[in-house]
């Protein structure tokens, strides 16, 4: 009896997650298709979203980038000093930022700042019938609401990552060279020598993928808030789904980071 109940429960749960996954893939395809359908595209919609998702995230990106670079400089210097190779500090900081920390941390910050906002906004629109209203006016919400957000996030992420990297490298410079006294010349020359196009390319691909992940998961979670198993109604439903979306996005970023790295290395 208990076994039967257990099977029933797990089957139900399994079906629910398969359903969810299927919905999310269909949602993504729908958005991609409607993005490339061109009638009446409003540039102002996209620039507004780039401002909200991209420009408004710059402060937090600069701030976290600076401190990440600084702590890398601090840790890197003290570790490398043991082997007498402080000269490699520049390349150590730059490589870890460009390949890993830049894309991942920038993506996590954008998830917290913009992803949660996307999810909550769309969730509220769904719950207050605004999305139904759009559909009734024969305006495709995938195109009108989602496409600008997708484009904006995918455009913003590589740029934000680049800012993060540059600020981080100078943060490392500040601590490693100015504070701890590593050689200024070797900080930069080791960096020029060791950072290759391959590394920048990897960081770029990652930031694009993470951008897509953020906007995809957060937008789809908000869009389908009414299908949530735990009940997606009202303010509480939106808050729950937003939390869930942020957690899911953050986890996916770390998981995908591993797979993208293993594919590109």
């Amino acid at each position: 009896m208990i076994l039967l109940k257990f099977l029933e429960k797990s089957g139900e749960l399994g079906l629910y997650y398969i359903n969810q996954a299927g919905r999310m893939v269909i949602f993504l395809l729908h958005v991609i298709i409607s993005t490339f359908k061109l009638p009446y595209y409003k540039v102002s919609n996209i620039t507004k979203q780039i401002y909200i998702i991209g420009s408004l995230s710059i402060f937090v990106i600069v701030f976290t980038g600076a401190f990440t670079g600084m702590v890398l400089g601090l840790q890197g210097y003290n570790t490398l000093k043991k082997f007498g190779s402080e000269g490699l500090l520049g390349s150590a900081v730059a490589l870890s930022l460009i390949r890993e920390l830049g894309p991942v941390l920038a993506a996590l910050m954008v998830t917290g700042r913009a992803g949660s906002a996307i999810c909550a906004e769309i969730g509220i629109m769904r719950n207050s019938e605004q999305i139904d209203a759009l559909e009734c006016m024969a305006i495709d919400p995938h195109k009108y609401i989602m496409a600008p957000k997708f484009i904006a996030t995918i455009v913003s992420m590589p740029l934000l990552t680049a800012i993060f990297n540059v600020v981080g490298i100078f943060g490392g410079y500040l601590v490693g060279v100015k504070l701890l006294g590593a050689s200024e010349g070797s900080y930069f020359t080791s960096m020029y020598k060791d950072v290759e196009f391959q590394d920048v390319y990897m960081g770029f691909v990652k930031s694009l993928c993470f951008g897509l992940l953020i906007v995809w998961i957060c937008a789809a979670k908000g869009f389908y808030v009414h299908y949530e198993r735990t009940g997606g109604f009202g303010a509480e439903g939106v808050s729950r789904v937003t939390t869930y979306a942020v957690v899911l996005t953050s986890v996916s970023i770390l998981v995908f980071d591993y797979f993208i790295t293993s594919l590109l290395l």
């Binding site: 509220i124 629109m125 207050s128 019938e129 605004q130 139904d132 209203a133």
Partner: peptide, 8 residues
């Protein structure tokens, strides 16, 4: 709509 569903 019942609650007007205006874009708030």
């Amino acid at each position: 709509f019942q609650n007007a569903a205006l874009f708030d």
